[in-house]
Every structure is written in structure tokens, then in C-alpha cells.
Design a protein around this nucleic acid. Structure first.
Length: 127
RNA sequence: CCAGACGGCUGGACGACCGCGGUCGGGGGCAACCCCGGCGGAGGAAAGUCCGGGCUCCACGGAAAUACGGUGCCGGCUAACCGCCGGCGGGGGCGACCCCAGGGACAGUGCCACAGAAAACAAACCACCUGAACGGGAAUGCCUUCGGGCCUUCCUCUUCCGGAACGGGUGAAACGGUGCGGUAAAAGCGCACCGCGCUUCUGGUAACAGCGGCGGCAGGGCAAACCCCACCGGGAGCAAGACCGAAUAGGGGCGACCGGCGGCCUUUCCGGCAACGGAUGGGUGACGCGGGGGCAUUUCCGCCCUGUUGCCCGGGUUGGUCGCGCGAGGCGCGCAGCAAUGCGCGUCCCAGAGGAAUGGUCGUCCAGCACGCAAGUGUGGACAGAACCCGGCUUACAGGCCGUCUGGCAGG
RNA sequence: CGGAGCGUAGCGCAGCCUGGUAGCGCAUCAGUCUGGGGGACUGGGGGUCGUGGGUUCGAAUCCCGCCGCUCCGA
């Protein structure tokens, strides 16, 4: 978040979404796509910097161990997918569901790819 | 072998690829940072947050009392505890063993529904017994005018004096239980045993236990009802707290206090016609200097703030560093102790995040479960995730391992 | 991290402090009034008192542990 300078665009590694206000902004004004393994909220940012990713797993899903496992699988799926197909200028919030934990990992990655596509994130890639 | 009791340990293993955060070393880069390599990276409950401490800040002269809260058989352990260990007493179990907030009910207040005569000061009531009075009845005897009258005995309604606390369907509980004697009827009224109270002595640090003696029985239960007694407790919590940076208007209000020099106000004295000057004591707070602070550090210059301090109002700040892991520490051995635990020696350093790492995927194996005669096939890891630390408690937990002990059956 | 409260019939609530009978409203069922509906009246059914222990003769009530939910402060 410190190096949001435009000339650092060679590094497209996503950073982390941290503040409550940012999550609320993505929830209220972003596009929402629900697929089997997760729910995606995406909100375009005008600065064109690297994508920022946040994770939400509510207490409804389970206890702390289950929530950790859910979040870590989402985190790994986002890492692998955004490494081979980086996007920018967007805030992404991945919300875990009950099914996230038992979903086969390859299917989870497909879910995320499809959700990004439906949210129009792929077309947000910088020119 | 079966059934059971208690205590302790463990909480899948190995590997491959891709990753995460910490730290150390090397290299690159002005720097932010990047690359390579090494090392280590969740638990017995990390959980619930129910107790106790350390640590930090705040408050506070000492001690006591009051209020509030907690604890409550005895002894020991501990930094401390509502904890642990060992005893005692009570209850349960054939037993190993398990359970118990277990001080005080002559300090006081209160409650004990229904039932029952009565639920706590003790008596009243029904029933029982002796006696008396009036009346009634029966029998015997005497007298008679034959209507009845009288004496004695017995029974009885009602009433009264007395005896006694034995009985009264009840009830969780009712002024001790059983038996014998005793009596008008009875009763610890007397005796034996049991229970109970007091007590000498003995054992024990003590709670308490045992033997003996004395007492004919004191006197219900509930204090997890109020309460009494004894002991303990200041408050808040790592978002504690400290530092650096950035930012803002380095802002405002109300008070208290200090005086090195000048200025200003003022007391007294001297000089002067006077303005004023000198000396002296006091006051005055933003007006100047000195002094102090800041702009990374040192010197000079410059700029800015500023007397010191308390409280309040307003404004800005969500960045970083420390606190932060060598500790009431882990492991092993020895000694003391029944034990909890303590002491000594040796050895080890063992997670430190901050929207928060400790992971994702796959393979082989080891337990478990299901199917199958079998080879095998399929399935599949219990409860659960550190956030300042430690000692406990409570709760959750698939399966496995070890030890000690009890009862029963069979065999030698 | 610290603190407060709640859990009783299908729903909303009393009863708890001061222990012995669980009650009220809506809903539901049956009957009557009406030609029918609505409505009114009469009568009835329905509750492991969140859960596990303890105290007591007796616990929804008192005490302790646990589960779930809500709210407040930093």
C-alpha cells in the first residue's frame, strides 16, 4: 500500500485489503457473484495499481479451525490464479461458505476463475 | 478369561512440488527492498474466561472500623488461590474405590405448604385413670299406708378437681428405641442393651478416636433464608504503559504558585521650585533580556515556542518502535518427604503475528471402520488454532499404550 | 479485555426476590347464536420451566457447572 506509485506496475503481486471501510465499500458498490465454492465481491479502482484481495469468513461457517481452513484455501486459490493471470485496478473480497472447505481444490480454482469472469474482472486488465 | 476401579502417557509417520511469517549469515541496491543459504514456527486443552498471581499505570500518611464481595472440618504445600496433597467425620458400593460449601440454630429475626390434636414458649384438645357432685339404671338387704322410700355394691351420661405425657388415622419431621418390672391408669418411674449429652484418662500437632465414669434425656429442621463469628480483598487492565514521527490553529477558558535583571505600578527616605533622578521594600505574568526547550547530533548564526503547574473545552493523529518472551521455564539424575512439593547437580533455548504466518496439493505407510473364506477392495483421521506471561479450575475429545488394584469363574 | 441480562404452551409475556397450586393474552379444537362467512359467547386440549448436578421433606424459584442468545463499555 505504500508503493502505489505507477512506475511499480511491473510488480503485479496483489496486496491485502485491510480496513473495514474498504470491505464495506466493496460490499455496497461492487459486483457480487456467487458460485458453488465461494462468493466474490469486486470493485474497480481508478488508480490501476495491483489488485487488492480481502477475505471474509463469518462465524456462521464454523469454529476458528474451520474458518482458518476455509480462509487459507481461498487465499491459496487466489494466489495461484492471480499469479498466472494477474489483474489490476480492482479490489476483490472473497467470502467463504460452508462448501468451501469440502470442495476439491481444482474445482475451487475453477469456481474462482468463473466468478472473476462473470464479474468482468478479466476485462479490467490494463491496456 | 470375564466384569470393574484408579492413575499416568500419547494425540498419526515419512516424502515431493508450490507458498507464508520470524530470525541469523552472505550478496546486491542511495534507499524502500530483492536474491541465496541455515535454523526453528500451535495445544493438552491454545477453548470457556471461572479463580489466583506476575507486570504496568492510577489512587493512597499509618492503623482500625463500617459497607460490599469472597472463603469456611484439621494439618501440610504453594508467589498466591474458590487450587493441590495427606488425614478426620458423614453417605454410597460385596469390593477396589467414589461423593460431600462439612464453622455457629441457648445472639437475634424468619419459614416449615397439605395432612394432623399439636410444627416449637410450651401447652391446649380427644381418648385413659383415681376421686367428688347431680341424675339415671341394675342387683342385694331392710321398712311400708303397696304409691314407694332407704342402705350397700356395681355400671353409666354430664360437669369438676387431680394424675399422666402412654395412645391419637397424619406427616419429611412430633419432647429417644426395644424388652422386663412397676402402677388406679401410666410414664426413664426403675433396670438391661442401643442411641444421646457432659467429662477424667489415653493416643494424635490437630480435626478426632478409644476405654472408663457421670447424667435419665438436656430436646426438631432449615443458615446453598436473613444473619453471627473467623480469615482474605485499593482500582483498572498490554487497546496497560513508554518512546519516535506525522498532522493541526504548537488554539482557548478557569484557577494556584515563583521573582535573576530591566520595564511598569506603588511604600518610605534623600536631592530638586517642578518634570524627574538615586536608594529602599512590596506588587505586577507576557512587555523586553537572561534562563529553558524545539528544528537528528556538535559549534556559530538564524527562526520558532516558553515563567512553573493543575483542571476543563476544542482541534489533529488509525504510521512506526519498545513492552514481547531466560521464564514461579523444559528435560534427565540424585536427595528429603506417605504425598502435594522443595532442594541440589547437569543439560537445553523452544512461535512471537498485528485483517493477524504456522499453509495448499499430491503420494506411500501405520492405526480405526465396513465388505470378503482369503489375497484384497473401499472409506478415513477425535476435540480443536497462540495474541502480555504464568499457576489452577471447568468444559470438549476418535483411537492407542502403560501401570496398580478389586470381584467372579476356570486351571496348576 | 471488562460488565449486565435473558431462556417458562405454537407466539408474546407473568410467576422466581419471600421454595409447596405453573397463570394471562393471541393462536388452536369442539359446541351455540347466523341461511353462510365474519364476529360474539361457552367449554376443552397443549408446557422435559435451556441443560447436568447439589441443598432441602419438597426446586421454575436457592447454589454451582455447562449450552444458546441479546445488550453495554474500552
Amino acid at each position: 500500500m505504500q508503493d502505489m506509485t505507477p512506475n511499480a506496475s511491473a510488480d503485479m503481486t496483489p496486496t491485502r485489503l485491510k480496513h473495514r471501510a474498504e470491505f464495506l465499500r466493496a460490499a455496497s458498490r461492487g459486483r457480487k457473484v456467487a458460485v458453488h465454492g465461494l462468493v466474490l465481491q469486486a470493485l474497480a479502482r481508478p488508480d490501476g495499481g495491483p489488485a487488492r484481495v480481502g477475505f471474509t469468513v463469518t462465524k456462521k461457517v464454523g469454529n476458528a479451525v474451520i474458518r482458518n481452513r476455509t480462509r487459507r484455501r481461498l487465499k491459496e486459490a487466489a494466489r495461484l490464479l492471480l499469479r498466472e493471470a494477474p489483474v489490476s485496478g480492482v479490489d476483490l473480497v472473497l467470502i467463504g461458505r460452508d462448501t468451501t472447505r469440502g470442495r476439491p481444490f481444482s474445482a475451487l480454482i475453477d469456481d474462482l476463475r468463473r466468478a472473476l469472469d462473470k464479474a468482468g474482472v478479466a476485462r479490467m486488465e490494463p491496456a
